[in-house]
Each structure stands twice: as C-alpha cells, then as structure tokens.
C-alpha cells in the first residue's frame, strides 16, 4: 500500500483528479444555468461566470455580524475543506484516488456530513432568525436523504463486496451494471432524487431565490459575505460535482476508466487526456437532466419534501431487495 502511495505517477494522477474537480466545478454550475436560460428563451450568463463570481467574492472584504463567534470564522473553511477531503477519496477518471487508503464510501458520506454540520452552525451563529430557519430545514433534509444515499451505496457495495470506492468503480466497469437491470433503474432514480435533495436543487430548494420563506440553503449563508461566501458557493459547486461524478461512474460505466488502471505502467499522457475528456463528457450528460428537471418543475412545499424523499427511499429499498432476492 505504501508503495502505491509513494508511486509518483499515481500521486500525480490523484492530484490531477482533484484539480479537475476543482476546475470544472464552477463550470458545471454555469453550464446548468446556461441550459436553463436557453430553455427559457434567454441568452443566459456566460459559461465562465462561476469563476468570475468566486474570484470577485474572494477579493471583497468580509462583513461579519457583531454577534458572530469563532464558529463563523472557521466554519467556511471547514465546510470547504471537508468537501475537498471527501473529493480526495473519489476516483474521477482513473481508479487511483489520491487518498483512497484513508477512507471508503461511508467515510465520504460522513465527511460531507461534517461540512453540513458546520454550515448549520454557521447559520445559527449570527443571531439572525433566517439562519436558524435555514439550518433547521437544511439539516433535516440532509438527514432524511442520508438513508437513501446509504442504501444506494450499499446496493453497489454488496454487489461488489467492498466499500472501497475505487474497487466498486473498477468492478462495475469490469462487470457492467446490467446484471440487475431493475435494481439499476431504481438505484439510478433514487440517486437522482437524493442528489437533488442534498444539493438543494429545484423540487427541494431553489438555489437562485433569496425569498426568506422559501429558501433553505441560501438562508443559512444569508449573512455570509466576501471570502466566506466564496467558500460556501465553491463548496456547493464541489458537492454537486462529487455527486455527478459518483453517478457518472456508477451508472454509466463506459470509457477508458479501467484502461488507465491496467496500463499504469504504460503511462501515457494521451490516455489520460482522453480519459479526462471522456469524463467531462459524461459529467455534461449527467448535468443536463438536472437543468431539464429544474425548468419543468416547481419547487415543492417544504412539507412535501419528505414525500419526495420517501419515494427515493422506497426506490432504493426495492433496488436493494431485488438485488438480494
């Protein structure tokens, strides 16, 4: 294991994967917004708007509430870093994740949970009534979505007899997903539902609105400004890309993914480039339905959200049980 870590090429691939995630995260968000605008018949923001927003926010000063404590100062960093660390477990276009030896897919879920926890604390730190509302709702949605996420994960963990993400991806790429087509469809749909819920996309939460009573995620970071807001925005982009990456590697297991792993000795720049391009293509394929869903659905009332999540839960249970039967 230590030899693997010390292998320079593997480390380089791992670092490249994280950089890819960091680089394309704002782009995917802009891409979704662009598609939405086009479907609405608008021209839409430019595709590089995400980067500009982040950079502009970093260069602005932070306005902090006088009631804020050290939680407000460290929470943005912890949220961002927890998402980043969980991104390190994630094999993106090749099975060599940078930190695959430190954690598996359960650790990934719980590390993201650490970020959610601190974001909720941040919402409550400024003595604002909106922050508490956002925290209360956001963490409830996150906790109701968690069992579904775990069940989907376990469906694949049991299929491949491991919780190591790289191993799961390799097995799925090797054996294909169509041994259990019904399970596959249901897991896919359940995963779509929880991705929407966890990332605060439209039927659950509206990322664009700033109306106090309808927003969930935005209410928590209402008091955020400057670099803190930039970190929060960036971590929500990253979270979305993590979910899309998981989905694209589990549910669309085609590409040069496994090819890279077998030919690690014949390391070639071209293969890697090809893999990256293929990965980005897959991500775009999976990002497009989100835009379509957002454009065609209205935001659910908050107390309808449990129904929505319940649908996801039942789908994931069916998927798991059908696999076991």
């Amino acid at each position: 294991m230590w030899n693997d870590i010390l292998n320079l090429k593997v480390a380089l691939i791992g670092i490249a994967q994280i950089l890819i995630l960091i680089i394309i995260a704002p782009f995917i968000n802009s891409y979704i917004n662009k598609i939405k605008s086009i479907l609405r018949g608008q021209r839409g923001r430019p595709l590089l708007q995400g980067y500009k927003d982040i950079f502009k926010l970093i260069r602005k000063e932070v306005v902090l509430s006088e009631d804020a404590s050290y939680i407000s100062k460290i929470a943005p960093y912890i949220v961002f870093v927890s998402i980043l660390v969980s991104a390190c477990f994630l094999p993106v276009f090749s099975p060599q994740a940078l930190l695959s030896f430190t954690g598996d897919i359960i650790a990934l879920v719980y590390t993201i949970g650490l970020g959610t926890f601190f974001m909720a604390l941040y919402g409550m730190d400024q003595a604002s009534s909106f922050g508490g509302l956002g925290s209360s709702r956001d963490i409830l949605i996150a906790s109701l979505a968690e069992p579904t996420l775990m069940l989907v994960i376990f469906a694949f963990a049991l299929q491949t007899k491991t919780t190591n993400i790289s191993q799961i991806f390799i097995d799925i790429h090797k054996n294909g997903f169509l041994n259990y087509p019904v399970s596959y469809v249901f897991a896919l749909m359940a995963f779509l539902i929880i991705s929407i819920a966890e990332n605060g996309r439209i039927p659950v939460d509206n990322p664009d609105t700033h109306l106090e009573l309808t927003m969930v995620h935005e209410a928590m970071i209402l008091e955020g400004s400057g670099r803190h807001l930039a970190l929060f925005e960036y971590s929500s982009y990253l979270k979305l890309i993590i979910f899309i990456t998981l989905a694209s590697n589990i549910f669309l297991p085609i590409g040069v993914y496994s090819g890279v792993s077998s030919s690690i000795s014949s390391f070639s720049f071209l293969t890697i480039l090809y893999a990256i391009l293929f990965y980005i293509l897959k991500v775009l394929i999976f990002a497009t339905p989100i835009a379509f869903i957002e454009i065609s659905m209205a935001k659910l009332r908050f107390f309808r959200v449990p129904d929505f999540l319940m649908l996801g839960f039942v789908l994931s249970i069916i998927s798991l049980v059908l696999y076991s039967i």
Binding site: L178, N179, P181, V182, Y184, V185, F186, M189, L315
Partner: peptide, 13 residues
C-alpha cells in the same frame, strides 16, 4: 434481454 428488462424497469418506475 438486459435492455428489455431495463426498459421494463422504467415502466415500473
């Protein structure tokens, strides 16, 4: 056959 099952699963979904 898998593809047929897949489509059937969508009907059920």
């Amino acid at each position: 056959a898998s593809f047929i099952e897949l489509m059937g699963a969508f009907v059920l979904f």
